[in-house]
């Protein structure tokens, strides 16, 4: 194999692959190869650029978001910057939001935030990586805005009745990140230990941060 872009992608699979993986070439996979080869022939993109874009994509994931959350929990000045202008604050972590803006919403004892995109699947990918399938599903996109408490219960999350549930529908140029409530009894923990308590799901708002 000389072309790294057509090599089987070697990384540990934590989740079952879907039928439309690299194994069989369907119509749209043939279309992908054709478009890529034509764009390369025309000098519009290079294989190296595609490779680098994939590597950048693989480098982003919940660990990055969790580090941002843990810093906000431990550094009040950073938290104030993050809440005032998330796009600018996450540059500290080397994150470039591109044409979108990062808008951080904070959970409090009185407000629980959750994120959806009903029109497509906008997602804070620059801080959380690529979205899980359920986030892009018809069931989540349809129901998260109309019965958020029911959807949260299906995820095993029970938000008390007296806490306001605030759904954010990402319809335009903001990308949302939930700043979860810091678990109790974590005053002595380092930012690194705190980050381990923060899951992707907590930053979408369908889970709480874990207790240590």
């Amino acid at each position: 194999m000389t072309d790294p872009l057509s090599a089987a992608h070697a990384h540990p699979h934590r989740h079952p692959p879907r039928p439309d993986t690299d194994d069989t070439l369907g119509h749209y996979q043939i279309m992908e190869i054709a478009i890529r080869e034509l764009l390369i022939e025309k000098g519009i993109v290079t294989p190296a650029e595609i490779q680098r874009a994939i590597e950048a994509m693989d480098a982003r994931g919940e660990a990055l978001g969790a580090r941002i959350v843990a810093r906000a929990w431990t550094d009040p000045v950073f938290k104030a910057r993050l809440m005032a202008d998330g796009t600018e604050a996450v540059r500290d972590f080397g994150v470039d939001m591109g044409t979108t803006r990062l808008f951080v919403v904070e959970n409090t004892p009185a407000v629980h935030n959750m994120i959806v995109c009903t029109l497509c699947s906008c997602y804070p990918r620059m801080v959380l990586g690529l979205p899980p399938d359920w986030y892009k599903s018809r069931n989540y996109r349809s129901r998260a805005v109309r019965e958020p408490r029911g959807v949260l219960r299906e995820f095993g999350l029970s938000v008390p009745d007296d806490v306001e549930v605030r759904v954010h529908d990402s319809t335009a140029d903001m990308r949302y990140l939930v700043l979860p409530l810091r678990p109790g009894g974590t005053e002595s923990l380092s930012a690194e230990r705190l980050a381990a308590l923060v899951s992707r799901d907590a930053m979408i708002g369908i889970a709480f941060a874990r207790n240590p």
Partner: peptide, 17 residues
């Protein structure tokens, strides 16, 4: 938005418009 909404009456949805 949903007159029959079954949840806290203070629940909200924020949308960019």
């Amino acid at each position: 938005i949903w007159p029959d909404y079954a949840g806290n009456r203070r629940d909200t949805v924020d949308i960019e418009i």
